[in-house]
Design a protein around this nucleic acid. Structure first.
Lengths: 123, 123
DNA sequence: CATCTAGGTTACCAAAAGTATACTGGTTGC
DNA sequence: GCAACCAGTATACTTTTGGTAACCTAGATG
């Protein structure tokens, strides 16, 4: 619904349809907006990746952050964690279907950012 | 490029094409990911809005936050600020073309979030 | 003259987010 | 036995973010 501001009989301005509910945009940002979250999903796009490999790919993020984000994403149903009974044991993370759709939207963000700062990401 | 992990001749694992540059997704999140930023852009989508009206629409955010976000968005060329020579003087904020394209992506985020939590935003 | 509006600013505080470094316990290869 | 790998934890610390509350100038209104 289109938000409006009206004046009441005393000339005081009021907003109708102000953000009364938790807004889906703010909520979505809480899930996908944390630092490194986008990068993690991005690196999972081609298939399952093991924890330490992910950590190597996103070398600038600490293991603590990687763990934290993965746990959070798992809780939201965006990634799955699977323990592989190898030796030594390994753990693989993958995108769920929900995670794959998030990827589409992350790609939109990527395109948007590249369009405004082409000099940084050039050709 | 598809990120990979390879083993060198000693069996040590290494990532190729790790996040060496600032990633456009992380950068974009810095611009659009702050709290209230999405809501502000959302409320500007139908045309210019005055500062206090915006503040009334997003009642849960303080004026300080609104100001801070607007300054940041202005610096990134996402919104414009125009002083209207009325009496009393007023200030109108609008989306730039760049801001309007961000709106497309925010709508994708909105749809994504609604799809995963339909019970919250239902019909 | 007191109060309302406009569009903010300032000072301060709490909590969240992020970084850095070290450590665990088990396994495999040299 | 020693080192390296696995998947993380633990602890301590700094930085950033978000939020509250009060205040400001200037013009209009009662």
């Amino acid at each position: 619904m289109k938000p409006r501001v009206i004046e009441d009989e005393n000339g005081r301005r009021r907003a109708t349809s102000a953000c009364e509910k938790p807004c889906p945009i703010e909520d979505g940002m809480k899930i996908l907006g944390g630092k490194w979250t986008g990068s993690i999903l991005w690196h999972l796009q081609y298939g399952p990746v093991r924890f330490n490999d992910l950590s190597r790919m996103i070398a600038a993020a600490s293991k603590k952050m990687i763990t934290e984000r993965l746990r959070h994403l798992e809780a939201q149903g965006v990634v799955t964690r699977e323990i592989i009974n190898s030796s030594p044991i390994s753990v693989e993370y993958s995108l769920t279907e929900r995670g794959k759709t998030a990827l589409l939207f992350l790609d939109e963000l990527r395109k948007w950012t590249e369009s405004i700062e082409p000099e940084l990401y050039g050709s």
